[in-house]
Design a protein around this nucleic acid. Structure first.
Lengths: 156, 156
DNA sequence: TTTTACGTTCAGTCGCGATTGAACGTTGAG
DNA sequence: CTCAACGTTCAATCGCGACTGAACGTAAAA
């Protein structure tokens, strides 16, 4: 791997770790992001200097989030992975899901509140409303983006 | 603490942990969210059954993110904390900052790319554009929200 | 003064999840 | 058939960051 790839991979690992993911997930993601071709598990493990076990686990987790796509080649038993072509959408979906969970938790907390806690209830509800606003705005942006992508492809 | 508060605190701790923060940060945040009055460090430590050291560290970290506000009372040497009154704005700011970092990293990676990697460059740039769109949309929603808050307060 | 109740800092511990190595099943080549 | 390469799984390790307890400084009270 060239120097700039190593740098990129390292920084992405740190970023992923800070966001609560496994560092190796960030490494795999970064490596594939800078690969013009899909890569096999063995290639990833070799480049990243980690075990195939970790790569296998994390790739399938990322595949579950639809950040990666599994591809096969005729006459090749290996499993290749590549970055999903709608990557931005998938990443945003992960973020949106996190926001929904947080809002849901706020709602649960509010519902359990004793009847006399009016101030608290108002505060929580306001926070939920804020999340609703942001979620709606983000989802709207997501839709716009998806439409633009479709049109772009159609134009080609 | 009542049952429903304990539940809420536990769930928030887990959520915070998944997002890459310290569980105690989530506990402190959740406890204060359900407290009508500001709380002193000792009170928080007692309720959450953790050391004052942890509470001290995490409260000041959350204060740094402006999620919490430090308040004092005349004739009381203790330090109280409460949830920031513009909490939704602060939370969104944290999220936006994360997105900005990610986009910046993509930009760095793209700039270091060799001149002949046209496909990769296009892919990274597209991803950056997506982030720009989402960031703009979120920032816009944030502004709208802040204006609405100001108007709401003025109306009172 | 001494004592007590604070908040903060820091070296050390400890839990837990990331990571690994080995074992396994499978598939294709020789 | 055997052998090698591949992906997956799982028990075990290991690193690292959360968390703690003790020490410290400070300020008010006694």
């Amino acid at each position: 791997m060239e120097r700039h790839v190593v740098r990129f991979v390292d920084q992405m690992a740190e970023l992923y770790e800070r966001e609560g993911f496994a560092p190796i997930a960030g490494r795999v993601f970064a490596r594939l992001l800078l690969s013009p071709e899909p890569m096999a598990l063995g290639d990833l493990a070799r480049d990243l200097r980690v075990s195939k076990a970790s790569v296998s686990t994390e790739t399938r987790r990322l595949e579950g989030q639809r950040v990666l796509e599994r591809v096969t080649r005729p006459g090749d038993r290996r499993v290749f992975y590549r970055i999903a072509n709608d990557l931005p959408v998938r990443i945003m979906d992960v973020r949106l899901e996190r926001m929904r969970r947080f809002r849901a938790l706020l709602g649960q907390g509010r519902k359990r509140l004793p009847p006399d806690a009016r101030g608290l209830r108002a505060r929580l509800r306001e926070c939920e409303r804020a999340y609703t606003v942001f979620l709606r705005s983000s989802q709207s942006a997501l839709t716009v983006w998806q439409r633009a992508q479709q049109n772009g492809r159609r134009a080609k």
